[in-house]
Design a protein around this nucleic acid. Sequence first.
DNA 1: CCGATCTCCGACTTGCATTGTCCGATATCT
DNA 2: AGATATCGGACAATGCAAGTCGGAGATCGG
Lengths: 158, 158
Amino acid sequence: MLRLSKKSDYALMAMTHLAMRPDDGASSSAREIAESYDIPLELLAKVLQRLVRVRLLVSVQGTRGGYRLGRSATAITVADVIQAVDGPVTMTACSEDDHTCDQFSKCSIRDPLWKIKARILDALTTVTVAEMAADNDTPVPVAAPTVSRMVFVAPMGE
Amino acid sequence: MLRLSKKSDYALMAMTHLAMRPDDGASSSAREIAESYDIPLELLAKVLQRLVRVRLLVSVQGTRGGYRLGRSATAITVADVIQAVDGPVTMTACSEDDHTCDQFSKCSIRDPLWKIKARILDALTTVTVAEMAADNDTPVPVAAPTVSRMVFVAPMGE
DNA sequence: CCGATCTCCGACTTGCATTGTCCGATATCT
DNA sequence: AGATATCGGACAATGCAAGTCGGAGATCGG
Protein backbone atom coordinates (compact mmCIF):
# COMPACT_ATOMS: atom_id res chain seq x y z
CA MET A 1 0.00 0.00 0.00
CA LEU A 2 2.88 2.34 0.75
CA ARG A 3 0.68 4.21 3.16
CA LEU A 4 2.30 6.38 5.77
CA SER A 5 1.40 5.99 9.41
CA LYS A 6 -1.13 8.05 11.27
CA LYS A 7 1.63 9.51 13.37
CA SER A 8 3.14 10.97 10.24
CA ASP A 9 -0.28 12.19 9.24
CA TYR A 10 -0.71 13.96 12.55
CA ALA A 11 2.80 15.35 12.44
CA LEU A 12 2.26 16.83 9.00
CA MET A 13 -1.09 18.28 10.04
CA ALA A 14 0.46 19.89 13.08
CA MET A 15 3.43 21.28 11.19
CA THR A 16 1.20 22.65 8.48
CA HIS A 17 -1.07 24.12 11.10
CA LEU A 18 1.82 25.91 12.72
CA ALA A 19 3.11 27.08 9.37
CA MET A 20 -0.27 28.63 8.61
CA ARG A 21 -0.33 30.66 11.79
CA PRO A 22 -0.16 34.35 10.98
CA ASP A 23 2.05 35.41 13.84
CA ASP A 24 5.12 33.32 14.18
CA GLY A 25 5.93 34.49 17.66
CA ALA A 26 2.96 32.90 19.37
CA SER A 27 2.72 29.22 20.09
CA SER A 28 -0.09 26.69 19.66
CA SER A 29 -0.78 24.19 22.37
CA ALA A 30 -1.12 20.52 21.66
CA ARG A 31 -4.71 20.69 22.80
CA GLU A 32 -5.54 23.43 20.36
CA ILE A 33 -4.17 21.44 17.47
CA ALA A 34 -5.73 18.19 18.62
CA GLU A 35 -9.17 19.71 18.87
CA SER A 36 -8.82 21.42 15.52
CA TYR A 37 -8.44 18.12 13.72
CA ASP A 38 -10.05 15.66 16.14
CA ILE A 39 -6.79 13.97 16.98
CA PRO A 40 -6.36 12.11 20.30
CA LEU A 41 -4.56 14.60 22.47
CA GLU A 42 -2.13 12.24 24.15
CA LEU A 43 -1.10 10.70 20.89
CA LEU A 44 -0.51 14.04 19.24
CA ALA A 45 1.53 15.13 22.24
CA LYS A 46 3.77 12.15 21.82
CA VAL A 47 4.30 12.96 18.17
CA LEU A 48 5.09 16.57 18.94
CA GLN A 49 7.65 15.50 21.50
CA ARG A 50 9.58 13.60 18.88
CA LEU A 51 9.49 16.63 16.63
CA VAL A 52 10.91 18.70 19.45
CA ARG A 53 13.70 16.21 20.00
CA VAL A 54 14.98 16.68 16.46
CA ARG A 55 14.59 20.45 16.73
CA LEU A 56 11.83 20.69 14.18
CA LEU A 57 9.71 22.23 16.92
CA VAL A 58 10.43 24.33 19.96
CA SER A 59 8.31 23.80 23.05
CA VAL A 60 7.31 26.35 25.62
CA GLN A 61 6.24 24.85 28.92
CA GLY A 62 3.88 26.20 31.47
CA THR A 63 0.54 27.92 31.16
CA ARG A 64 -0.02 29.51 27.75
CA GLY A 65 2.79 27.34 26.53
CA GLY A 66 2.79 25.40 23.31
CA TYR A 67 4.84 24.71 20.23
CA ARG A 68 6.54 26.83 17.60
CA LEU A 69 8.40 25.84 14.47
CA GLY A 70 12.06 25.22 15.11
CA ARG A 71 13.04 27.00 11.93
CA SER A 72 11.46 28.58 8.89
CA ALA A 73 8.68 26.55 7.29
CA THR A 74 10.47 26.90 3.98
CA ALA A 75 13.42 25.01 5.42
CA ILE A 76 11.41 22.05 6.69
CA THR A 77 10.71 19.29 4.21
CA VAL A 78 8.10 16.57 4.36
CA ALA A 79 10.89 14.04 4.54
CA ASP A 80 12.18 15.72 7.68
CA VAL A 81 8.86 15.33 9.40
CA ILE A 82 8.23 11.75 8.33
CA GLN A 83 11.69 10.57 9.25
CA ALA A 84 11.51 12.25 12.63
CA VAL A 85 8.32 10.40 13.48
CA ASP A 86 8.51 7.11 11.64
CA GLY A 87 12.23 6.59 11.38
CA PRO A 88 14.26 6.41 8.21
CA VAL A 89 12.45 5.82 4.96
CA THR A 90 13.24 2.32 3.80
CA MET A 91 11.41 0.29 1.21
CA THR A 92 13.10 -2.99 1.88
CA ALA A 93 13.59 -4.88 5.10
CA CYS A 94 17.34 -4.70 4.64
CA SER A 95 18.84 -1.26 4.78
CA GLU A 96 22.43 -0.42 3.97
CA ASP A 97 23.84 -1.29 7.33
CA ASP A 98 21.19 -3.55 8.76
CA HIS A 99 21.01 -6.89 6.99
CA THR A 100 18.37 -8.52 9.12
CA CYS A 101 16.83 -10.17 6.14
CA ASP A 102 16.82 -13.87 5.44
CA GLN A 103 17.25 -13.47 1.72
CA PHE A 104 20.04 -10.93 1.86
CA SER A 105 22.57 -12.90 -0.11
CA LYS A 106 20.14 -14.03 -2.75
CA CYS A 107 18.08 -10.91 -3.05
CA SER A 108 18.02 -9.71 -6.61
CA ILE A 109 15.93 -6.61 -6.25
CA ARG A 110 17.91 -4.74 -3.64
CA ASP A 111 19.92 -2.47 -5.87
CA PRO A 112 17.07 -1.53 -8.22
CA LEU A 113 14.79 -0.76 -5.31
CA TRP A 114 17.32 1.54 -3.75
CA LYS A 115 17.22 3.65 -6.85
CA ILE A 116 13.47 3.90 -6.57
CA LYS A 117 13.77 4.75 -2.91
CA ALA A 118 16.11 7.56 -3.81
CA ARG A 119 13.51 8.99 -6.17
CA ILE A 120 10.79 8.76 -3.57
CA LEU A 121 13.01 10.40 -1.01
CA ASP A 122 13.68 13.13 -3.54
CA ALA A 123 9.96 13.68 -3.95
CA LEU A 124 9.59 14.02 -0.21
CA THR A 125 12.53 16.35 0.26
CA THR A 126 11.55 18.80 -2.46
CA VAL A 127 8.21 19.59 -0.85
CA THR A 128 8.42 21.87 2.16
CA VAL A 129 5.96 22.45 4.94
CA ALA A 130 5.54 26.00 3.72
CA GLU A 131 4.37 24.71 0.36
CA MET A 132 1.91 22.39 2.02
CA ALA A 133 0.47 25.28 3.96
CA ALA A 134 0.20 27.32 0.77
CA ASP A 135 -1.48 24.53 -1.19
CA ASN A 136 -4.13 24.29 1.45
CA ASP A 137 -7.45 25.94 0.69
CA THR A 138 -9.12 25.60 4.07
CA PRO A 139 -8.09 28.88 5.70
CA VAL A 140 -7.46 28.22 9.35
CA PRO A 141 -9.12 25.31 11.07
CA VAL A 142 -9.96 26.97 14.34
CA ALA A 143 -10.86 24.73 17.18
CA ALA A 144 -14.27 25.34 18.57
CA PRO A 145 -14.22 26.31 22.21
CA THR A 146 -14.83 23.15 24.10
CA VAL A 147 -17.99 24.38 25.76
CA SER A 148 -19.90 25.84 22.86
CA ARG A 149 -19.07 22.77 20.87
CA MET A 150 -21.54 20.81 22.91
CA VAL A 151 -24.43 23.16 22.45
CA PHE A 152 -25.85 21.69 19.31
CA VAL A 153 -25.33 18.13 20.31
CA ALA A 154 -28.31 16.25 21.56
CA PRO A 155 -28.80 16.71 25.30
CA MET A 156 -28.70 13.01 25.81
CA GLY A 157 -25.43 11.25 25.33
CA GLU A 158 -26.45 8.22 23.38
CA MET B 1 8.69 3.84 7.19
CA LEU B 2 6.99 3.71 3.83
CA ARG B 3 8.08 0.13 3.55
CA LEU B 4 6.40 -2.11 1.04
CA SER B 5 5.01 -5.44 2.09
CA LYS B 6 6.82 -8.72 1.81
CA LYS B 7 4.28 -9.84 -0.71
CA SER B 8 5.38 -7.05 -2.98
CA ASP B 9 8.96 -8.02 -2.31
CA TYR B 10 8.29 -11.59 -3.31
CA ALA B 11 6.31 -10.53 -6.34
CA LEU B 12 9.13 -8.33 -7.58
CA MET B 13 11.67 -11.06 -6.96
CA ALA B 14 9.60 -13.55 -8.90
CA MET B 15 8.97 -11.20 -11.78
CA THR B 16 12.63 -10.27 -11.98
CA HIS B 17 13.55 -13.91 -11.80
CA LEU B 18 11.30 -14.71 -14.73
CA ALA B 19 12.60 -11.74 -16.65
CA MET B 20 16.15 -12.99 -16.22
CA ARG B 21 15.42 -16.40 -17.63
CA PRO B 22 17.32 -16.89 -20.85
CA ASP B 23 14.64 -18.78 -22.72
CA ASP B 24 11.32 -17.07 -22.59
CA GLY B 25 9.35 -20.03 -23.74
CA ALA B 26 9.99 -22.16 -20.68
CA SER B 27 8.24 -21.65 -17.41
CA SER B 28 9.45 -21.62 -13.82
CA SER B 29 7.48 -23.38 -11.16
CA ALA B 30 6.54 -21.70 -7.93
CA ARG B 31 8.69 -24.18 -6.08
CA GLU B 32 11.77 -23.37 -8.13
CA ILE B 33 11.41 -19.67 -7.40
CA ALA B 34 10.59 -20.22 -3.75
CA GLU B 35 13.67 -22.36 -3.19
CA SER B 36 15.89 -19.96 -5.07
CA TYR B 37 15.16 -17.18 -2.64
CA ASP B 38 14.07 -19.05 0.49
CA ILE B 39 10.51 -17.86 0.25
CA PRO B 40 7.69 -19.86 1.85
CA LEU B 41 6.22 -21.78 -1.04
CA GLU B 42 2.58 -21.38 -0.14
CA LEU B 43 2.91 -17.68 0.33
CA LEU B 44 4.68 -17.18 -2.94
CA ALA B 45 2.03 -19.25 -4.69
CA LYS B 46 -0.62 -16.93 -3.35
CA VAL B 47 1.24 -13.93 -4.66
CA LEU B 48 1.74 -15.48 -8.06
CA GLN B 49 -1.95 -16.24 -8.30
CA ARG B 50 -2.78 -12.61 -7.94
CA LEU B 51 -0.30 -11.75 -10.64
CA VAL B 52 -1.97 -14.28 -12.91
CA ARG B 53 -5.35 -12.75 -12.24
CA VAL B 54 -4.27 -9.41 -13.60
CA ARG B 55 -2.54 -11.06 -16.55
CA LEU B 56 0.95 -10.09 -15.50
CA LEU B 57 1.73 -13.79 -15.46
CA VAL B 58 0.47 -16.78 -17.37
CA SER B 59 0.21 -20.06 -15.55
CA VAL B 60 0.72 -23.47 -17.05
CA GLN B 61 -0.82 -26.23 -15.04
CA GLY B 62 0.22 -29.80 -14.85
CA THR B 63 3.44 -31.62 -14.17
CA ARG B 64 6.05 -29.47 -15.91
CA GLY B 65 3.92 -26.43 -15.48
CA GLY B 66 4.85 -23.10 -14.04
CA TYR B 67 4.65 -19.42 -14.73
CA ARG B 68 5.65 -17.21 -17.62
CA LEU B 69 5.49 -13.46 -18.00
CA GLY B 70 2.19 -12.31 -19.36
CA ARG B 71 3.84 -9.79 -21.63
CA SER B 72 7.27 -8.41 -22.37
CA ALA B 73 9.30 -7.50 -19.31
CA THR B 74 9.85 -4.07 -20.81
CA ALA B 75 6.12 -3.46 -20.65
CA ILE B 76 5.70 -4.36 -16.98
CA THR B 77 6.37 -1.62 -14.48
CA VAL B 78 7.10 -1.90 -10.80
CA ALA B 79 3.86 -0.08 -10.12
CA ASP B 80 1.96 -2.79 -11.99
CA VAL B 81 3.38 -5.47 -9.76
CA ILE B 82 2.90 -3.62 -6.49
CA GLN B 83 -0.65 -2.59 -7.25
CA ALA B 84 -1.57 -6.09 -8.30
CA VAL B 85 -0.38 -7.51 -5.01
CA ASP B 86 -0.94 -4.78 -2.46
CA GLY B 87 -3.81 -2.87 -3.97
CA PRO B 88 -3.75 0.73 -5.13
CA VAL B 89 -0.95 2.93 -3.90
CA THR B 90 -2.38 5.40 -1.41
CA MET B 91 -0.51 7.49 1.09
CA THR B 92 -3.47 8.72 3.03
CA ALA B 93 -6.29 6.83 4.65
CA CYS B 94 -8.78 8.70 2.51
CA SER B 95 -8.50 8.06 -1.17
CA GLU B 96 -10.38 9.94 -3.85
CA ASP B 97 -13.57 7.95 -3.59
CA ASP B 98 -13.30 6.43 -0.17
CA HIS B 99 -13.61 8.96 2.64
CA THR B 100 -13.43 6.60 5.55
CA CYS B 101 -11.42 9.06 7.56
CA ASP B 102 -12.56 10.86 10.67
CA GLN B 103 -10.77 14.06 9.82
CA PHE B 104 -11.86 14.27 6.21
CA SER B 105 -13.54 17.63 6.43
CA LYS B 106 -10.79 19.27 8.45
CA CYS B 107 -7.82 17.59 6.85
CA SER B 108 -5.41 20.18 5.59
CA ILE B 109 -2.77 17.99 4.07
CA ARG B 110 -4.86 15.99 1.63
CA ASP B 111 -4.24 17.95 -1.53
CA PRO B 112 -0.51 18.44 -1.01
CA LEU B 113 -0.04 14.78 -0.25
CA TRP B 114 -1.81 13.75 -3.41
CA LYS B 115 0.76 15.63 -5.41
CA ILE B 116 3.52 13.75 -3.66
CA LYS B 117 1.74 10.50 -4.26
CA ALA B 118 1.62 11.30 -7.95
CA ARG B 119 5.37 11.77 -7.97
CA ILE B 120 5.95 8.51 -6.17
CA LEU B 121 3.65 6.71 -8.55
CA ASP B 122 5.58 8.22 -11.40
CA ALA B 123 8.81 6.88 -9.94
CA LEU B 124 7.28 3.43 -9.76
CA THR B 125 5.84 3.45 -13.26
CA THR B 126 9.01 4.54 -15.02
CA VAL B 127 10.97 1.54 -13.81
CA THR B 128 10.22 -1.69 -15.62
CA VAL B 129 10.83 -5.25 -14.59
CA ALA B 130 13.27 -5.58 -17.45
CA GLU B 131 15.35 -2.77 -16.02
CA MET B 132 15.35 -4.41 -12.62
CA ALA B 133 16.63 -7.62 -14.16
CA ALA B 134 19.33 -5.68 -15.97
CA ASP B 135 20.45 -3.79 -12.87
CA ASN B 136 20.95 -7.02 -11.06
CA ASP B 137 24.50 -8.31 -10.77
CA THR B 138 23.84 -11.72 -9.27
CA PRO B 139 23.63 -13.83 -12.42
CA VAL B 140 21.01 -16.47 -11.83
CA PRO B 141 20.15 -17.30 -8.26
CA VAL B 142 20.04 -21.03 -8.42
CA ALA B 143 19.76 -22.49 -5.02
CA ALA B 144 18.75 -25.13 -2.59
CA PRO B 145 20.22 -28.42 -3.62
CA THR B 146 17.22 -30.38 -2.55
CA VAL B 147 18.13 -33.84 -3.55
CA SER B 148 15.82 -35.07 -6.24
CA ARG B 149 15.48 -31.67 -7.74
CA MET B 150 18.99 -31.89 -9.08
CA VAL B 151 17.95 -33.82 -12.15
CA PHE B 152 19.32 -31.09 -14.33
CA VAL B 153 16.84 -29.88 -16.79
CA ALA B 154 16.23 -33.17 -18.51
CA PRO B 155 17.19 -33.50 -22.15
CA MET B 156 13.77 -32.79 -23.40
CA GLY B 157 12.96 -29.16 -23.69
CA GLU B 158 9.71 -28.14 -25.12
C1' DC C 1 -6.25 -45.30 -17.48
C1' DC C 2 -3.81 -44.33 -13.16
C1' DG C 3 -0.76 -42.03 -10.31
C1' DA C 4 2.26 -38.18 -9.66
C1' DT C 5 3.09 -33.48 -9.88
C1' DC C 6 1.84 -28.96 -10.13
C1' DT C 7 -1.25 -24.97 -10.10
C1' DC C 8 -5.20 -23.03 -7.94
C1' DC C 9 -8.22 -21.23 -4.20
C1' DG C 10 -10.25 -20.27 0.12
C1' DA C 11 -10.19 -20.21 5.06
C1' DC C 12 -7.67 -20.23 9.23
C1' DT C 13 -4.12 -19.11 12.86
C1' DT C 14 -0.31 -16.50 14.51
C1' DG C 15 2.68 -12.79 15.32
C1' DC C 16 3.82 -8.11 15.47
C1' DA C 17 3.48 -3.27 14.79
C1' DT C 18 0.65 0.52 15.05
C1' DT C 19 -2.57 2.89 17.58
C1' DG C 20 -4.46 4.66 21.48
C1' DT C 21 -4.73 5.22 26.74
C1' DC C 22 -3.19 6.03 31.44
C1' DC C 23 -0.46 7.86 34.99
C1' DG C 24 3.03 10.52 37.13
C1' DA C 25 6.62 14.26 36.93
C1' DT C 26 8.09 18.88 35.85
C1' DA C 27 7.66 23.70 34.55
C1' DT C 28 5.35 28.13 34.17
C1' DC C 29 1.84 31.68 34.57
C1' DT C 30 -2.10 33.72 37.23
C1' DA D 1 -1.26 27.32 45.56
C1' DG D 2 -3.82 26.05 41.56
C1' DA D 3 -4.42 25.58 36.76
C1' DT D 4 -2.55 24.40 32.59
C1' DA D 5 1.27 23.24 29.81
C1' DT D 6 4.92 19.93 28.24
C1' DC D 7 7.47 15.61 29.12
C1' DG D 8 8.23 10.54 29.41
C1' DG D 9 7.56 5.80 30.07
C1' DA D 10 4.62 1.87 30.50
C1' DC D 11 0.62 -0.44 29.14
C1' DA D 12 -3.61 -2.45 26.61
C1' DA D 13 -6.13 -3.24 22.27
C1' DT D 14 -7.01 -3.24 17.68
C1' DG D 15 -5.75 -4.35 12.99
C1' DC D 16 -3.21 -6.21 9.41
C1' DA D 17 0.43 -8.61 7.41
C1' DA D 18 2.69 -13.09 7.35
C1' DG D 19 2.56 -17.64 7.23
C1' DT D 20 -0.14 -22.31 7.45
C1' DC D 21 -3.30 -25.92 6.18
C1' DG D 22 -6.30 -28.65 3.38
C1' DG D 23 -8.50 -29.81 -0.71
C1' DA D 24 -9.95 -29.44 -5.71
C1' DG D 25 -8.73 -29.41 -10.59
C1' DA D 26 -5.55 -29.91 -14.55
C1' DT D 27 -1.83 -32.00 -17.01
C1' DC D 28 1.83 -35.19 -18.08
C1' DG D 29 4.38 -39.66 -17.81
C1' DG D 30 4.05 -44.36 -17.90
